[in-house]
């Protein structure tokens, strides 16, 4: 985003003041409205499309495959494609590895829900397509992944659970499906401007922020990864530890509301 010197100065001064004045009048913990659509790709087990109020858009597809869980370690694999960026671009690779860590089966996500038989489990492929993005997209992507996973239906197993004695491949019902019930984690991004922490930073706010924080939320509490991230190239500064505490407290207070609104889609 290209802002003039005067614009940047105005934005920084108003955001860093006490109390923080955001250009759109939001409170520091307020989110902008988003629209979410789910279940529009019949060839995928689950799908979601999220549109932010600044026009940023992201589509997520969930597909499954039956694998031998003694061979496959990772039962959740995230693949991110940002339109206009190369597959090996820095921003694409950092977001992909971050989301893979967040959704890591075992620590991030309870993968016992994916098990089919003693030998086989479902492997879930989460494919993310970011059509346009005006600020750091990781939070938007995680909301989309959350909605997609929560509206995913997997085939229903009809063959036996114990398939070690009598070797057989899992067979599934022709029509019935089972709703996937895993509690996907969320990722929040905060902007640090002066002594203030702001949730859901807009593009212009990110452009003047001193730093950014990525905080993950799973199963009702804060979880790893927690990282700092530079939101722009020009204004990056270090921040005092008490701001980190402030940010964590903010997420702890408002994350349950976000989860509740995403659940009630």
């Amino acid at each position: 985003m290209s802002l003039s010197v005067a614009e940047k100065s105005y934005l920084y001064d108003s955001l860093a003041s006490t109390p923080s004045i955001r250009p759109d009048g939001r409170l520091p913990h307020q989110f902008r409205p988003i629209e979410i659509f789910t279940d529009f790709l019949p060839s995928s087990n689950g799908s979601s499309r999220i549109i932010a109020s600044d026009g940023s858009e992201c589509i997520v597809s969930i597909k499954s495959k039956v694998v031998d869980h003694h061979v496959e370690n990772e039962l959740l694999q995230v693949d991110v494609d940002i339109a206009g960026q190369r597959d090996d671009a820095l921003v694409v690779e950092t977001i992909t590895s971050l989301l893979n860590k967040v959704l890591k089966s075992g620590s991030g996500v309870d993968s016992s829900m994916l098990q089919l038989t003693k030998k086989y489990s479902f492997k879930i492929f989460v494919d993310v397509l970011v059509i346009s993005s005006h600020s750091h997209p990781v939070s938007l992507i995680s909301f989309a992944i959350y909605s997609a996973l929560n509206s995913t239906y997997l085939p229903k197993l009809i063959s036996a659970f114990d398939d070690l004695e009598v070797e057989e491949l899992p067979t599934f019902h022709d029509y019935d499906m089972v709703k996937l019930d895993i509690n996907p984690p969320l990722v929040f991004i905060l902007a640090v401007v002066g002594n203030n922490m702001l949730l859901d930073p807009a593009a212009n706010e990110s452009e003047v922020a001193n730093n950014g924080l990525i905080i993950s939320w799973s199963n009702g509490k804060i979880t790893s990864p927690i990282r700092s991230v530079a939101l722009n190239d020009s204004n990056v500064k270090s921040f005092k530890p008490h701001l980190l505490k402030q940010g964590l407290a903010m997420v702890e207070k408002y994350a349950p509301d976000v989860v509740r609104s995403l659940e009630n889609l």
Partner: peptide, 17 residues
């Protein structure tokens, strides 16, 4: 043209770029 990996019934292993 971005043919996504999830466009067909069988998910593609590699990118079509």
């Amino acid at each position: 043209v971005n043919i996504t990996k999830f466009s067909k019934f069988e998910r593609s292993k590699s990118s079509h770029k």
